[in-house]
Simulated assay, not measured.
Amino acid sequence: MSLPRYVARRLLLGAVQIVLVLSLVFVLTEALPGDAAVTIAGDNPDPAVIAALRQRLGLQRPAWERFGEWLLGALHGDFGRSLVAPRPVADIIASAAGPTALLAALAVLLLVPASVGLGVLSASREGGRLDRFVTSSTLGLYSAPEFAVGVLVVTVFAVQLGWFPPTAVGSGSLLARPEVLVLPVVVLLLRPVCSLSRLVRAGMIDALASDYVRHARRAGLPPGRVRFAHALPNALAPAVQQLARTADWLLGGVIVVEAIFVVPGLGTTLVDAVSARDLPLVQGLSVLFAATTVLVNLIADIAARLLAPASEVGR
């Protein structure tokens, strides 16, 4: 199958996946007790006030009708207005995207050198103490969920040692107080660094044992040049696709990390929207996350086809 046809098929499949995700999110949010009218009314609400709010917000209409109206608007680029905040959903998402984009950008910028450096260092000392320590440490850290690591990091480095702020509450601009970003970025990086460094290590071990590396050594090339100019480019090939998928995985990690450190980004906005039963905002964020997932996975699969076109023969 040609690349344009492959991309078109994947985009069509991605559109179907997004609609299915939105339908599932709508059903699950509708199944939660309460609604936006109860949230707006506050504690000990008057039933008459709640009924009036439901009438004003259109919550008395059937769920399928509200979902269909929202989906039709979304197809034209209109994600509706928040039920709780009197603002368009697109504006809320745009204002919350900055902190999330900053966290994700810092994580990706640090991810590549940290993963490659750790993987090359471990492979260069295969079987040694450093290699065993790095391998066991990355395996253990990869197995730990973000929320558990986040709570531990806050307890040790923020509460007990006092080196960094425990949350971003009251920080204003994140760039004005970069120390607020240290712990969130560290927690966000731990799992992807562990996964990518292990792939780089495995690729480097295979590359260092290959015929072309042995030939380069026999030719008298310096060890550093052999390692970085000949072995490393071939060792990185298996990690390229995983790197693209890691960007997709960072979305889920950002939601958890932002909730732990109270970073005012898309993850915190999503948690608040679910708590307030703000369906238009939940749906708008779901579109963004689902579309990003589909796009990043498409890029990863295209990269895999270009790196290993022989695997597509006969499909």
Results as ranks from 00 to 15, higher is better:
54 R>S: 03
116 V>K: 06
46 D>R: 14
149 V>C: 04
217 R>V: 00
144 A>Q: 08
177 R>M: 06
51 A>W: 06
275 S>C: 00
41 A>L: 09
118 L>T: 14
229 A>C: 06
272 D>C: 02
294 V>I: 00
264 P>E: 06
260 I>Q: 06
68 G>M: 00
170 G>S: 11
173 S>G: 09
315 R>G: 12
125 R>F: 02
151 V>R: 10
306 L>N: 14
59 L>H: 08
248 D>V: 09
23 S>Y: 08
61 R>Q: 08
172 G>Y: 13
315 R>E: 13
9 R>V: 04
225 R>S: 09
249 W>A: 09
218 R>Y: 11
17 Q>L: 14
79 F>G: 01
269 T>E: 12
183 L>R: 06
191 R>Y: 10
204 M>W: 04
214 R>D: 10
144 A>L: 14
12 L>G: 14
57 L>E: 07
84 V>R: 03
246 T>Y: 06
149 V>W: 08
309 P>T: 13
173 S>V: 12
10 R>A: 04
61 R>S: 11
268 T>D: 10
112 V>G: 07
162 G>S: 13
298 L>P: 02
305 R>Y: 08
66 R>M: 02
181 L>A: 04
303 A>G: 14
19 V>E: 05
46 D>Q: 14
103 L>V: 04
225 R>A: 12
238 P>D: 05
279 L>R: 05
212 Y>T: 03
198 R>M: 02
207 A>L: 07
194 C>T: 14
93 I>W: 09
52 A>R: 15
48 A>E: 14
129 R>T: 11
169 V>F: 07
229 A>Y: 05
300 A>L: 02
294 V>N: 04
135 T>P: 05
301 D>Y: 00
108 V>C: 07
272 D>S: 13
101 A>V: 05
103 L>N: 05
271 V>F: 11
122 S>A: 15
219 A>Q: 13
16 V>R: 15
246 T>R: 11
105 A>W: 08
188 L>V: 12
252 G>V: 05
71 L>N: 04
167 T>G: 02
286 S>C: 10
17 Q>N: 08
277 R>C: 09
164 F>P: 01
52 A>H: 15
306 L>C: 13
91 D>W: 06
120 V>N: 10
107 A>C: 14
124 S>Q: 00
118 L>P: 12
